[in-house]
Amino acid sequence: MKLYSDSFEKLINELSRLPGIGPKTAQRLAFFILKMQKEEAESLAFAIQEVKNKIHYCKVCNNLTESDICNICSDQNRNKEIICVVEEPNDLIAIEKTRGFRGVYHILLGRISPMDGLGPEDIKIDSLVGKVKKGGIREVILAINPNVEGEATALYIAKQLKPFSVKITRLAHGLPMGADLEYADEVTLTRAMEGRSEMFST
């Protein structure tokens, strides 16, 4: 027995492809869309079309942008000698929110993970190496997620950049601010202990 009409079932199928959306939620959303005003539904469809048409990756750093080069890369006040390497555009947003970083970015658009079919050639490593090779870069900060895939990616990039005279650093791992030592898990605490830093260092 067929429960839904073809077009309705198609909508449910499309929605359930979104991350975090299971078949039940997809069904709920589809019913909601069905009940929407026609203009509202069309505006949703248009918004989806528009991002796909207008937004693409920045030619310099792979950030999301509507022009050729993103706001950060075209900002004259940004220090182009320091590149912060992140996995995804949302990592960039997280760092930008701190307002503490005045350099530029390079977004890899992924990380090395053989089980997901992603090797070094499948993410934007070559273009990073190209930038460093061209010169004028003082420091590359590897702000890649601290898991085994992120670590493999960082180690590989560091190896590729080693021949050039550029400082390569990575983010410290350790305790979150405001945390109580007593409640920190042992893994984090061990890492924080290993990555301890000297006070009053000169």
Binding site: I112, P120, E151, A152, K159
Partner: peptide, 13 residues
């Protein structure tokens, strides 16, 4: 795969 360089990154870990 062609790029066996990447093995170093996994072996090290």
């Amino acid at each position: 795969t062609k790029n066996m360089d990447i093995l170093d990154s996994w072996d090290q870990q």
